[in-house]
Design a protein around this nucleic acid. Sequence first.
DNA 1: GAGCGACTCATACGACTGTATGATACGAAT
DNA 2: ATTCGTATCATACAGTCGTATGAGTCGCTC
Lengths: 232, 232
Amino acid sequence: MTDPDTPTSQPEAPGAPKPASGQNPAGTSELILDVAEGLFAENGIAATSIRDITGEAGGNLGAINYHFGTKQDLVATVFTRRLEPMSNRQWALLDEVEKEAGEGSPRLEALIEAMIRPPVERSFEAGKRDTAFMRLVGRCYGEPNPEVERRIRSHLEKVWTRFAGLLSRALPGLTPEEMYWRVRFTVGAFHHTLLTAGREANVPPEMQEGLNAETMICRLAAFAAAGMRAGL
Amino acid sequence: MTDPDTPTSQPEAPGAPKPASGQNPAGTSELILDVAEGLFAENGIAATSIRDITGEAGGNLGAINYHFGTKQDLVATVFTRRLEPMSNRQWALLDEVEKEAGEGSPRLEALIEAMIRPPVERSFEAGKRDTAFMRLVGRCYGEPNPEVERRIRSHLEKVWTRFAGLLSRALPGLTPEEMYWRVRFTVGAFHHTLLTAGREANVPPEMQEGLNAETMICRLAAFAAAGMRAGL
DNA sequence: GAGCGACTCATACGACTGTATGATACGAAT
DNA sequence: ATTCGTATCATACAGTCGTATGAGTCGCTC
């Protein structure tokens, strides 16, 4: 596929294989991915047609076929493009938490924060660039796409396993069942927030101020940590 | 399709307008609604075609057109059929909570339970009848269907307003912003649970036992209440 | 038993879907 | 100057979508 790294945009690195044509210095495939990401997040994957994407991207139908093959492959690429950096960030933050904990128990709030910070930050900041993707991730729980599910799962599995281990060290008093469901509740609170983030219609105007990544992470971590500790 | 044994409801009440034909004593429209409910929940609304529904219902394409007109109308009927009984139940439970509270503060756990018990119970019990619908409700947050959104909102608005009032009595120390977001988190935890409920693939086998409405309501209420009280 | 309303059926329509193909334009290498 | 790989384009295809129509069937009432 000759795809250089060029994570998102940038006018094409000088050493790269070069797009041959001067028509699209930013990379057509990246443009398509951005547009697809936005439309998938806004309207859902199933409801977004390939023509919707090429239409908004200004390109041609064949462009998607050429760059990605099938729609499924396009969907997969949309996800993998963002998932890897995100889980890497989570992994690094878990490193910090573990280092801070040493031999003792990790701080619960820090642990939760390590997991939610990367996606929430991307969702609320960075020039709103990844807002769409984060809503997309949130949406995935509702729109069952086997391929996407498989892909997300495989990308997040490693970091989640590590998180689960640290969590049981932080909350030794919890039974596995209780732990399992409370993590699920937390994921729900988190993913629902991401899903509706950025859709102004969903947030009354008077609640929009102070709506930034940092306060959101703080609120979510406090809520989830308290819920996790319930009854202990 | 001459289905003899009433897949869902009673064999048509005696005083009812009568199905005229002996072909479907159980009511074709009810059968269609049941099938549609299941398929919408399983695959999403957009991804479910009218032909999928009539196919599984054994009926004909024209049946949907005759009974419901458009697909959008069918979708709307699928929702209204369940929403009203559910919100009535919530309203009644809120009555009890308010009576119990008298002039004082309502019990937070009871308040939350009043809201989640009706949907969770339907989701986990009653012969699994409404499992599909509850997943469907959960899914709605992810699959933006303006008509559905409008309908759900209008159906649940009254009971939610009342809940919000009682909630601020139960948690007088919380700022409106904090309250707003914590309610949102709770809704997220709740809806995510419903969404994935009944999909065995999503719940590891060892967590399946003890998976019933009562323990689920208990767990959710405890988690949410603790989260709501965080820092107080 | 003729008429009527409720209902089910087969079929058709145009719009839209994902995918595939072949022609064309362009820069770089030879 | 020709060739070649890369990329974009218009167009075609078969399939599916939601919707509409009209004929046909049944039980009921008068």
